[in-house]
């Protein structure tokens, strides 16, 4: 550990412990052999993981979340790429306002969005439908997708495209052979960040989801409201393990800092 004194190092270790302790405790409790909340002091048991299978609603919610996240992040990217190119490439009246509008879901509390969507979907007959759920998630994750695509689009030197044009490429060819490959890293990381945010969203989804379309975080939230037991710990532990795997993959591909520094909320 370079350049930090022992006091700084101690602080750092405490901070990391603070960040990881709640996750570690969830994983530990999930392995308890007892029928109540406790640390697995009398050996490890997988009984609470097996118990998940007895509750198909968790599995159903997991698949629903997966579909929802994949669908909404794909749509969000499809809308973000042209929008980002317009914002990054052109100076036009209304540009600032559009940018602010596209990023506004970051500023609106998700409770408010949830209420707004519930009201709106009730009026137009989309309440409780999967379509409504997807639409609402598209809105919530667009800012994340847009920011990363935007950063990548700003990074392109317009002269590169001019060079391609001067070599005889048509606008479509330039877009396909030059522009897309250059923004691809932003598109991929934007999609992933959108996916994760959609998968984890709970506050707005509580309002929009119906019993038929409930997502995993909402299912967990509702369960915890009733009762906290080792079963919910084991479900959470699975979720944490899954996230950890994804995290390592993301870090390998992009580097976490780049993904986040380009995308921190706000």
């Amino acid at each position: 550990m370079s350049r930090n004194g022992s006091l700084a190092t101690a602080f750092h270790l405490l901070f990391v412990t603070f960040m990881l302790a709640p996750l570690a405790i969830v994983c530990a409790v999930a392995f308890t052999p007892e029928g109540y909340l406790s640390l697995p002091t009398n050996g490890f048991s997988l009984r609470w993981f097996r118990q998940i299978l007895a509750y198909p609603e968790f599995l159903r919610a997991f698949w629903a979340s997966l579909w929802l996240a994949a669908l909404s992040s794909t749509i969000a990217i499809a809308l973000s790429v042209p929008a980002a190119l317009a914002i990054a490439r052109y100076r036009f009246p209304g540009r600032e306002a559009l940018t602010a509008l596209f990023l506004s879901p970051l500023m609106v509390p998700h409770v408010v969005l949830g209420i707004a969507f519930l009201r709106f979907f009730t009026q137009v007959g989309l309440a409780g439908t999967f379509t409504g759920l997807v639409l609402s998630h598209v809105i919530v994750v667009i800012p994340f997708a847009l920011r990363l695509v935007l950063a990548a689009s700003y990074g392109i030197d317009a002269r590169i495209e001019h060079a391609a044009v001067s070599l005889g490429a048509s606008p479509m060819t330039v877009f396909r052979r030059v522009t897309i490959p250059l923004i691809l890293p932003g598109v991929v990381s934007g999609w992933m960040l959108a996916f994760i945010n959609s998968f984890d969203e709970v506050t707005m989804t509580v309002f929009v989801a119906s019993p038929a379309t409930v997502t995993l975080p909402v299912r967990m939230f509702l369960y915890i409201q009733d009762n906290i037991d080792p079963l919910i710990a084991s479900v959470s532990a699975c979720l944490i393990a899954l996230t950890a795997v994804m995290l390592l993959v993301l870090d390998r591909i992009f580097g976490l800092d780049r993904l986040f520094v380009g995308a921190g909320k706000g």
């Binding site: 901070f15 990391v16 960040m19 990881l20 302790a21 709640p22 996750l23 570690a24 405790i25 969830v26 409790v29 909340l37 994760i196 998968f199 984890d200 709970v202 995993l216 975080p217 967990m220 939230f221 915890i224 906290i228 919910i232 710990a233 959470s236 979720l239 944490i240 996230t243 950890a244 994804m246 995290l247 390592l248 870090d251 976490l256 800092d257 986040f260």
Partner: peptide
């Protein structure tokens, strides 16, 4: 990884951790 990783974990699971602690 340790500090930013938890950002990717559902808030529900992280809050559960504090309740368990």
């Amino acid at each position: 990884l340790a500090i930013l990783g938890p950002l990717l974990v559902s808030v529900v699971a992280r809050t559960l951790g504090w309740a368990l602690l």
